[in-house]
């Protein structure tokens, strides 16, 4: 039996006196593709930042691949929700992707040939290789999101964390991205935070809902129980992607 990808017990977190997460306990096996739903302000992004070691928990225990969150840093990839910060910064697409190759252990010197090859590989994967020399400020929001996904992939992660990866991309890229993630999921554990219940139903292996606490459901289809859960924590039920069936076919139909 492999070490679980993510093992969280009794996690507590609060900003000052406002509790954000309470009694969060869940386990994600390696190879899983977990979709995390939840209302705005329900604690999704906070949970992600705790799993990445950016925030420190007030209580409870987090183990990522058997290690403390920040010790597993070379083994996780991360794509933040917000990609439109610092757009006037003088930095090229390729330089951003190369950031994913840093690990804090080789502080001196320049990027190796291997780093550059990896950057090329992931930029080609997201279809942004021809933009490698372009400043980040002169591409569209959707293209920027592809670049940030490439940066997360450049870390060669065992677990990939994505926070609303398709928030501002067109539906065509959204479908492409999830097809691509499904392929990637053969080797990499994926945790994706999203508003889009349609995506959840078509691609993920398990669903979780975060609203102060967390409920995890195994299964890739949206069942009536999951809709119940979704209504308990209201999510965006409007499907942004191509039209598709959300509910399973009724027997009498």
């Amino acid at each position: 039996m492999d070490v679980p990808a993510i093992d969280v017990k009794d996690l507590q977190f609060s900003y000052r006196d406002t509790p954000v997460l309470e009694e969060v306990t869940f386990l994600v096996e390696q190879g899983d593709f977990l979709g995390v739903l939840g209302p705005n302000g329900g604690g999704k992004t906070t949970l992600l930042k705790l799993l990445l070691g950016i925030l420190k928990p007030r209580g409870g225990r987090i183990s990522i691949l058997g290690e403390a969150p920040h010790n597993a840093k070379h083994r996780v990839g991360y794509m933040p929700q917000n990609t439109d910060f610092n757009v006037n910064f003088p930095i090229s697409v390729r330089e951003i992707v190369l950031m994913g190759r840093l690990d804090g252990s080789r502080l001196w010197g320049w990027h190796s040939r291997k780093d550059h090859l990896k950057a090329e590989e992931v930029l080609k994967k997201v279809g942004m290789w021809e933009y490698r020399r372009v400043p980040i400020g002169s591409i569209s929001g959707g293209q920027r999101q592809r670049v940030f996904i490439a940066r997360a992939l450049a870390t060669d992660p065992e677990i990939l964390f994505l926070d609303e990866p398709t928030a501002s991309v067109d539906s065509e890229f959204e479908t492409d991205l999830y097809d691509f993630l499904r392929e990637l999921n053969k080797e990499v554990t994926i945790l994706v935070v999203t508003h889009d219940i349609g995506v959840i139903s078509r691609y993920v292996k398990s669903v979780a809902c975060v609203n102060r606490t967390m409920i995890v459901h195994k299964g890739r289809e949206i069942t009536p129980e999951m809709i119940d859960m979704a209504y308990q924590c209201p999510v965006d039920l409007v499907a942004h992607g191509l039209p598709h069936r959300v509910l399973p076919t009724h027997k009498g139909e």
Partner: peptide, 17 residues
């Protein structure tokens, strides 16, 4: 490389170590 990463995206720089 590290100063560049920190200046552009401190949070990501921290996450990768």
């Amino acid at each position: 490389r590290e100063f560049l990463a920190m200046s552009y995206d401190e949070e990501f720089a921290f996450v990768v170590g």
